[in-house]
């Protein structure tokens, strides 16, 4: 079983996101450690890509700051190595297909395994094309996390057939970014997914308040928070206490249902 599954053993998991190298390698290490200490069950680390078509302005800007700070794929792996000296929090990468393709799927997955990066979220690698990366990922024990969207409809079984980490439910159409409303059929989507997979179901895209986190945790197995965290970092890059406070509140809201089930 993929190590990511352990993160869900006690109930809904809180999964914050940061962009590697935003604004510097050292800062990223500090943020991930702070998030882990504040109650993150998994941390999602963005490997910047020049043209992140699934990301909204907030995460696009984080990528630009990371490039300005000199981020490269090698430096992302260095960041993970430095994180690993301080915390064993489960990590997944979010990146775009060209990054592992260019690095070499086998070589990329082997590096991930060595640094205990347990999963990959790749928005532009749908089920139809995942077959080219899947052998390298499974041989190295790295989970390829499928994304499911409100438009997936009849495709749910096909999308989740290889899900061994978790399933990433995109809660709204369009790009990443904070939202106040989510797709109307989210409840139905979760119910339909439960029929075809026993993998944990995590919801992302737009979640930013503890109330939202608590509501989502009532139905799903995990809450993914990206843009809200990245925006905090952008507004106050040195305020580790502020980041920890926000992450702690979101983690508590996500975990509030634990033990009730």
């Amino acid at each position: 079983m993929n190590p990511l599954r352990k993160a869900f053993e006690n109930g809904p998991a809180f999964i914050p996101f940061v962009t590697a190298g935003d604004p510097s390698a050292e800062k990223t290490v500090a943020y991930v450690v702070a998030l882990a200490n504040a109650g993150a069950d998994i941390v999602e680390l963005g490997v910047p890509f020049s043209d992140p078509i699934a990301d909204g302005p907030v995460i696009q800007a984080a990528g630009l700051r990371a490039f300005a700070g000199g981020i490269t794929v090698e430096r992302v792996f260095d960041i993970v190595a430095a994180i690993r000296q301080q915390t064993q929090v489960p990590l997944v990468f979010l990146t775009y297909a060209n990054i592992p393709f260019k690095y070499g799927y086998e070589r990329f997955c082997a590096r991930c395994a060595k640094l205990r990066v347990a999963g990959l979220v790749i928005p532009d690698l749908p089920a139809e094309e995942a077959g080219e990366l899947l052998p390298a990922a499974s041989q190295n024990g790295v989970a390829l996390i499928p994304l499911v969207s409100p438009t997936s409809g009849h495709r749910l079984a096909k999308l989740t057939v290889h899900a061994d980490g978790f399933v990433y439910i995109v809660s709204a159409l369009g790009v990443t970014g904070t939202r106040d409303g989510f797709a109307q059929n989210l409840d139905d989507l979760i119910a339909d997914l439960r029929k075809v997979t026993d993998a944990p179901l995590c919801v992302g895209f737009g979640i930013h308040t503890p109330e939202q986190a608590s509501a989502i945790a009532g139905q799903a197995d995990g809450v993914i928070v990206g843009s809200a965290i990245v925006k905090l970092i952008a507004d106050a890059p040195d305020d580790l206490a502020g980041l920890a406070e926000y992450a702690g509140a979101m983690a508590n809201a996500t975990h509030s249902g634990r033990g009730q089930a």
């Binding site: 078509i53 532009d124 690698l125 749908p126 089920a127 499928p146 969207s149 438009t151 495709r155 999308l159």
Partner: peptide
């Protein structure tokens, strides 16, 4: 159906696959 030699494919977010 989706390729020319080694090239082509459908590398887009899941949201667009149904379309």
């Amino acid at each position: 159906e989706t390729r020319f030699g080694d090239f082509g494919g459908q590398y887009v977010p899941e949201t667009l696959m149904t379309e």
